[in-house]
Design a protein around this nucleic acid. Sequence first.
DNA 1: ATGACCGGTCGTACCGGA
Length: 258
Amino acid sequence: MRIATWNVNSVGARLPRLLDWLETRAPDVACLQETKCAVDAFPTAEVESLGYQVAVHGDGRWNGVALLSRVGLSEVRTGLAEEPGFPDPEARSIAATCGDIRVHSVYVPNGRTPEDPHYAYKLRWLEALRATTASELADHPHAVVCGDFNIAPTDADVWDPALFVSSTHVTAPERTALAELLGLGLVDVVPRPGKGPNPFTYWDYRAGAFYKDMGMRIDLVYATPPVADTVRDAWVDRETRKGKGPSDHAPVIVELDR
DNA sequence: ATGACCGGTCGTACCGGA
């Protein structure tokens, strides 16, 4: 079984690439983030024609998450329990049962700067994610929580930690929130790098960041032990970040012996 | 060469992204 997570940065702008990627990488389950489209605008028919079932949670212009599965897709849940908003709740999480695994696709708020109200929102949202995940795991011991967490778990997950002092994505409260999520009994499935020493998953479009490998690992796969024990391989699909018209994120692909 | 921001909107600048 192959599970992938990918921040596509607009499914509308990425549709030809998304369809090509589904055909060539053939994930059994794909967690998408930043679809940036309303539920009705999602290219459901095109994705279904490749053999996938589709579950979508969308706002319109921003945010948006989706789950694609060709191993079954049931018990869809959108949003978190007591989900905070900015000011209203946004389309940032979706979960479903795919095969024998409960799969969550999440898009954590950016935070902008530590002084910005968006940062406090990010921390509130992470607490709601922790609480919802805790109750979900009680019912589903085989689970993965995948997505764009907008947090680099360690300094090794940023190309130059000195540049990120006092920036979002690396602050202690954000990393503590991640640690508390892991503390529910999850395992960080760190992928192999696509190239070079670091398993980065995001590179800014500007200043040649990708070819200089000035990236971050912010797209994460957290798995419960019964799932983590079956990981055969995990890798950054760096090829998908190349060429004309890529997302600024690369997919993370996890191969399971199941 | 992977090659030096991009996607969205009621916009033809500016916000959001990270």
